[in-house]
Design a protein around this nucleic acid. Structure first.
Lengths: 259, 259
DNA sequence: TGGCATCACTTTACACCATAAAGAGAGAGG
DNA sequence: CCTCTCTCTTTATGGTGTAAAGTGATGCCA
């Protein structure tokens, strides 16, 4: 499930994100009993604990002792709530990095932090990137990477492209882990059990596997799929290695292109 | 929306994928009026035309002149149908690549083909990768990349990691385009209109933007966000450039690590 | 050929979802 | 104090996947 940004009144969405209070005149009637911050915090708790699929207006409302509908006096729709969740939680991914040893260790540290952040809040990966949320904290994070990348001396167009490549690469690999965890939680089957059952069936269904897929078979034979740490689920371990190796390769490429 | 694999009887799922007919005895009663292939084809049409969010059992059934429930005599659940859709459609991403000029042009061509494939069937990006579908066509595609990568001389572990990095990178960047298209279709607002409205609001909400985000401002000033082709939606153009540059960088890194 | 078990397919039902619309009730400005 | 107005709840609508039950045609066997 990819969750798209709210499509309501754009001005109201942006005002919510940037906390620009729209004209506040004294009005009769009861005051609101909740705050947007409290709602967003509750929603983040739900998403962290049960995943994006479990994030419903009812669930968030109930956590605050209200019905789901009550939230609609605070937020135009679920989309805007997700935008706010995203921009709130991404704030914790912000750090400033020391450029003393050059841009490579700084960018590596940034990527590792983003990796850890995504694994801490996997639902973030399900917030669509197509129409960026454009909230303040997203820009804070973006600004820091761009600052680091300016150190490479890449020309502006390449700099933007490389920024996107780094972000999408980290997201892409993190998604595998996030989905693996969601699948384990949702089905109650561990990666190991699942793979064990599936690979047995695979040899049953395709007894000629090694002939049909010689390269994969050769890779398996030469130990390409061997686990090095038995205590970590296979998918997570493999993804982490993929992340580290891919990141290093990507940075090699940036280095070669930087002047 | 991420769609997870079917969790029904694993043997039946695999038998469906690998077209291994389970014991067929003569039985009384009417014969089935549809075939799995027809159902899968109809489902792919729905997903191609209206996106994954519009893929419902009812929608697929109606396209075949049945109710949604009718499909359950063919397929244990929606998850298995999606698995079948995935493994069917990925077959068209298969090509064999010439290694005559070395692995780099071959891998570049492969990545470009995958990129085009994902943009042709954006819904594929919403099929979870956590628990791979493990169908025959997926292995055909995988086998070819692995074959190409063996030419780099990387050690087996690095080879597997680099395979994952390439796949996830292409998927990650393609996702941006796919989501942008889905957003445009769903909201009826083009990227350009959306961005135009949003950026106006942005300067309104954050008049001190350039002070708060100096690196991004500097990048903008130096032309980092300038479009080169006015006829292509901005997001798509930017993502395509990101794909090309990131891929080249990644391959640089592989080259450096290969012996 | 007749009977009938069995299957394909439909209908109905259930528990969810977002959210529109309407109702209830309390708070606060005048 | 009156009454307007706003918060919050209730109800309703149209959607989802799929369980369970109903319908009727089919094809095996006697």
């Amino acid at each position: 499930m990819v969750v798209f940004a709210g499509q309501g009144d754009a001005r109201r969405s942006m005002a919510l994100l940037w906390r620009t209070p729209l004209a506040e005149e004294p009005r009769p009637g009861p005051k609101q009993g909740l705050t947007i911050d409290a709602i967003v915090a509750a929603a983040i708790e739900v998403a962290d604990e049960y995943g994006m699929a479990a994030l419903s207006m009812r669930a968030v409302g109930e956590r605050l002792g209200r019905t789901g509908m009550a939230l609609y006096t605070y937020v135009p729709s679920k989309g805007e709530l997700v935008d706010l969740m995203y921009d709130t939680v991404i704030a914790e991914a912000h750090r400033t990095y020391d450029l003393g040893d050059g841009w490579r260790p700084a960018l590596t540290a940034w990527a590792e932090d983003m990796w850890a952040f995504y694994l801490r809040h996997p639902w973030v990966l399900q917030v669509s990137q197509a129409r960026p949320v454009l909230g303040p904290n997203e820009y804070v994070v973006l600004d820091e990477v761009v600052r680091l990348l300016f150190e490479t001396g890449l020309d502006p167009a390449a700099l933007r492209q490389v920024t996107g490549a780094l972000f999408q690469f980290v997201r892409g690999v993190a998604q595998v882990v996030a989905e693996a965890r969601e699948a384990s939680a949702a089905t109650g089957t561990s990666d190991e059990d699942w793979w064990y059952a599936r690979s047995a069936l695979l040899t049953e269904m395709a007894p000629d596997f090694d002939q049909r897929f010689p390269a994969v078979a050769k890779l398996a034979r030469s130990g390409g799929f061997t686990m090095t740490d038995e205590t970590v689920p296979y998918q997570e371990q493999a993804a982490t290695e993929t992340f580290r190796t891919g990141l290093a390769a990507l940075l090699d490429g940036i280095e070669r292109r930087s002047r």
